[in-house]
Nucleic acid binder design. Structure first.
Lengths: 190, 190
DNA sequence: AAGATAGGAATGAATGTTCATTCCGCATGA
DNA sequence: TCATGCGGAATGAACATTCATTCCTATCTT
């Protein structure tokens, strides 16, 4: 591990614990131990546990959105856009092993503040826009975009979870197989 | 509500609260209030909070399995078997609004006992068997069964969640559209 | 039939535990 | 020596669980 400063150590430990056990089952002393800092130190960087989880949430939702928007092929075919989406979802999970799972597990949390909820909505809208355009072009199945997002997002994250748990080995074949499967689930069949 | 006995009132209140907020964020007094009983009464029926959640978990996983196995068309086509699966997943969620979501949210919980984990594994095996047979017959996509389950289960539950949250109106068209989408995600395309 | 009594069921205030948060003394470096 | 960053014991609040007490209902007794 390239020596991180304390804040980043805390963030990274908290992310993993929150992803694994959830916000409510993760205690501040637990985070402190895992990050090799005193419990009090966490409060030098974050006002309280809720601020910590909201900061994490916003940071990672933001990074995820950037990862997806980066180089998005707006003018290519819907299929190519889908490929970009899928590829970058995988890229993001490779760079931040626990982040997507953390986001899903907490995206309806009772502790999320206004900003976090707004950020999450924006993320969903990004996908919505893609599906709406695809439906207009008759390349995407005629289902509510919310439903299409749920299918894509739900399936992808459940898979991610399996991989995180070590129950499924990641491989290029698996990736492309899953991409095909998910594309078939959202595309319009002729 | 056909007057329930106290145990059932407690079970039903706990189910809803656990599904909504999760085990760790749900307090026993909360359950008591929602069930209109004294906090102590809960302990007349369940040894403690963990026993309560494990009882719930096993009860609903068992009912879910029965719902799926009931009248399963072992000798019909894979497509018909899939239809049965899907139809009964919907049936189950209609009969037990919060149950599937509760199961998903808690299926990796740190408080689950051996029995609960075993029951859940059995449930997954039921789906596994179906997919394995379908692959043998070349009707199901060549992906690990675990992955196919994740896709089906993840997508279905994310949708269910949307409906529970009132963000999507259930309707026969939606159901059949989703069934088609999910079938396309797991079937082998020629 | 009315009153008395027993015993199981239910209650919620009291208890001990666990947690988030604070606070004060220590260490490091300028 | 002073200032800054840290640690972890101390604190108070919230929680799960217990238990002394009350309530209810069914069965007796007269």
């Amino acid at each position: 591990m390239t020596t991180l400063n304390k804040r980043d150590t805390i963030v990274s430990s908290a992310l993993e614990l929150f992803a694994e056990r959830g916000f409510d089952a993760t205690t501040v002393p637990m985070i402190a131990t895992s990050a090799n800092v005193g419990a009090g130190t966490i409060y030098r960087y974050f006002e309280n546990k809720e601020v910590l989880v909201n900061t994490l949430f916003q940071e990672y939702v933001g990074t995820f959105m950037k990862t997806i928007e980066e180089g998005f092929p707006y003018h290519e075919s819907i299929r190519d856009q889908f490929h970009h989406l899928f590829k970058n979802m995988i890229l993001f999970t490779n760079q931040h092993e626990h982040a997507l799972y953390f986001i899903r597990k907490h995206s309806a949390g009772h502790f999320l503040d206004e900003q976090s909820r707004e950020d999450f909505t924006q993320l969903l809208e990004l996908f919505s826009t893609f599906f709406d355009e695809g439906k207009e072009k008759n390349e995407i199945r005629n289902l509510p975009s919310k439903a299409l997002i749920a299918i894509l997002y739900g399936a992808f994250l459940e898979l991610q979870n399996l991989i995180r748990a070590g129950e499924l080995e990641p491989s290029p074949e698996l990736s492309s197989g899953v991409e095909e499967s998910l594309w078939d689930s959202v595309r319009r069949h002729t």
